[in-house]
Design a protein around this nucleic acid. Structure first.
Lengths: 410, 410
DNA sequence: CAAGGTTTAGAAGAGAGGAACACAAATCCT
DNA sequence: AGGATTTGTGTTCCTCTCTTCTAAACCTTG
């Protein structure tokens, strides 16, 4: 009987919260900005900006520096920048071929990062969690895990319920119904809140904040790995769906008469464009993994007919699936990650041809396609962004109660 | 270089606007509520509610009535209700088989309504606009068109750009690149702002506000007509995509080796589940239209084997397409409109079977499927909702400047 | 008819951003 | 050089809006 939505009633504090959030968000995505630029971006007055920045400075989240003259007339505006060391999150990633951990500071600076290969066989959740904890412990020895962390963000190749980090399926890991959030909480000790999300969803988040789709509000991120993952940004925000299962574009049915899929269905998109499909079409061992894919890409670059044919066939199916998604979502930008980003330069025409034939929007308003720019680390960076989200959404929770300020100044 | 999003900076007025908006929205969707219920729903205090309602009353948008005692102890709370006659919009619909017009008052009351059949051949935009204007003029003789209207909402079977009501394609009408918004503005004279949107998008809006999906935040509405239309609600708001072309689910590729589609592609969903596909499978004339469909439904209800087989085949493909969409969008509710709502009771198992096989979310969290409850009029009601949107989003623009109030009370 | 509970009414208070003015620090031009 | 110009900061009210608090109104229950 409730209306849902985000608790409608607004108050003065809501305004302050929103404005603090807007400022910190801008600083976080840009790293540093002048005060006057903040004025321009937020539409707030200088006095408001001054007051809000003052609070952020008091909390040591950001600092101001006397500006150096930049050749433009007028008094230079002080430069405001985030303090990466003062707000640090732990980002973890469970990918198909590797595990990764990173410490990322406010403003997006990667303070430390490690990635280790992972064999492609099924591993129990406990083992992977232990490996991740170990990996995290190896970061920045002077900054023991679990202390002073703002939170933890986790990217995982699997279908994740957002609310509690419950992984309902992860074919690449051989998992079903793994309470990953709880497991990590136990393994990491008290390292702040833990947020788990799908790898591609976080890749999308990273690409839209710091990568190929920067600034776009409606974005589709599609990443080709063993499976095909997707992340959708609607109106600047990740679209997770009702339970957080949204964006599983790898399992749209493009060819119901086609090959069986690991998910139990048949003719899913990933059976036509995934790594296995590419290798199959090229006549290489389907389970060859990265090694075979790299070899195939080399062959194609060298001009091998059969390699290129296989790629174009994948490109054709890629275009078919993308056209469906364009018709449903009408994104401004499509970012191709993983395998797709790598083959894109070779099969661009094929993809665009298929898209032109099947997608409805007028050619002039057709979507822009761009390969991912953050590469392998996109999901890891997205996990960091996820962990920063509570701070960015409501910085006031991390601010000293400002009765103190009033007292101090009086 | 701008951040997009909705101009971040917030001010005190923003708060008032948001709160007025929240209150009026609640009243609009519920028709009438007691003050104390509004307090509960918005989380605002009684005093705040009092002040805001006072302004809405002063603007004559709502009225308060002395409450009749309801058997509960305590002082009874006055009932607040909208004044449908004081804020009226004109809703228009260009459907496949008919044209419709309605006058709808604040709170959702349909004050007057007309619908006329339309032959299924292509008609020039000018003709249809003229017919619509004529239809609108016939509504409520005491309330001449173009006067005192808050705005106009238009639902049209076609791909529409939201910003200006430009129809880029409408296969059912034989239109390409018709500036419908401008045409209607010219035809209707000064009837307030005109907002045009896709029929299914508006059907979704109506069903989520007043129909089968009431209260749900993530909804997929799929309507079967000659073509297949779709409307998507994400987080309580219509998802239109970057240019407003989103939700064209009829043209996802489900069978690339299949039949050619009117859109120029092949194997689109609507070639497998549209009206034509159903008739074809049943061995009836593909262009038979409503008459044949009705006959087929009668046969099926009477137990005809061949009729039921055709329906189950359509149901199977319906399930395939829905599964794809569930994987992408993870909605809470799917509302089936038009043809699909009518065949749903007959093919429910088939749809659910296919959905169960192909959709990822765990069965326990699987989507709820419901036939539309607003029937033929859903898009028309959605058009009214669209036209109300500016008022609901910012009621303060329709309020007397409240310097006046202060003066009057002083 | 009194007691108890719920709600409205009105006044005072507190939080937050906006506007205006004086002043500061650069660049540009003569 | 040195003044004009431009851009930006600091500071002080001012306005807007919701909350809090107290008194009064109104209904049900025993």
């Amino acid at each position: 009987m409730t209306t849902g939505r985000d608790s409608v009633g607004q108050r003065s504090e809501t305004v302050r919260r929103a404005n603090l959030s807007a400022i910190l968000r801008e600083l976080h995505t840009s790293g540093s900005l002048s005060r006057s630029e903040l004025v321009a971006r937020t539409g707030l007055t200088r006095s408001a900006i001054r007051g809000l920045i003052g609070e952020l400075v008091a909390a040591d989240l950001v600092s101001e520096e006397r500006a150096e003259p930049l050749g433009t007339p007028g008094r230079p505006s002080p430069l405001v920048h985030t303090n990466p060391e003062q707000a640090v999150v732990l980002a973890l990633e469970i990918a198909v071929d590797s595990l990764a951990a990173a410490e990322v500071g406010l403003g997006g600076r990667v303070l430390d990062q490690m990635r280790v290969d992972r064999p492609r066989r099924d591993l129990a959740a406990g083992e992977i969690v232990a490996d991740l904890v170990h990996l995290a412990a190896g970061l920045r020895r002077d900054h023991p895990t679990g202390e002073g962390l703002l939170g933890v963000g986790v990217a995982v190749v699997g279908v994740v319920r957002r609310s509690d980090g419950f992984v309902s399926t992860a074919p690449n890991l051989g998992w079903r119904d793994v309470p990953l959030g709880d497991r990590l909480r136990a393994g990491l000790g008290s390292a702040g809140p833990i947020a788990v999300a799908n790898e591609a969803d976080l890749g999308a988040l990273a690409e839209v904040r710091r990568g190929a789709a920067r600034g776009a509000d409606d974005v589709l991120f599609v990443s080709g790995e063993v499976g095909v993952g997707g992340g959708i940004i609607v109106d600047g925000k990740p679209m997770t769906g009702a339970a957080g299962y949204g964006g599983e574009v790898g399992h749209i049915a493009v060819n119901p008469a086609g090959r069986p899929c690991r998910c139990g269905s048949t003719g899913c998109w990933e059976t036509e464009v995934g790594e296995g499909a590419l290798l199959l079409r090229a006549g290489r061992p389907v389970d060859g993994g990265r090694v075979e894919v790299n070899a195939l890409l080399r062959d194609a670059a060298a001009g091998s007919r059969s390699a290129l044919d296989a790629m174009h066939e994948v490109g054709r199916w890629l275009g078919i699936g993308l056209a469906s998604l364009v018709n449903v979502l009408n994104p401004r930008v499509i970012v191709l990650g993983g395998l797709f980003g790598r083959i894109y330069p070779l099969v661009r025409e094929t993809i665009e041809e298929e898209l032109g034939r099947r997608a409805l929007p007028a050619p002039g308003e057709l979507v822009r396609i761009a390969p991912a720019t953050l590469g392998l680390d996109a999901p890891l960076l997205g996990a960091a962004e996820l962990a920063f989200e509570p701070l960015l959404a409501d910085p006031s929770r991390w601010l000293p109660p400002h009765g103190m300020l009033a007292l101090a100044s009086a």
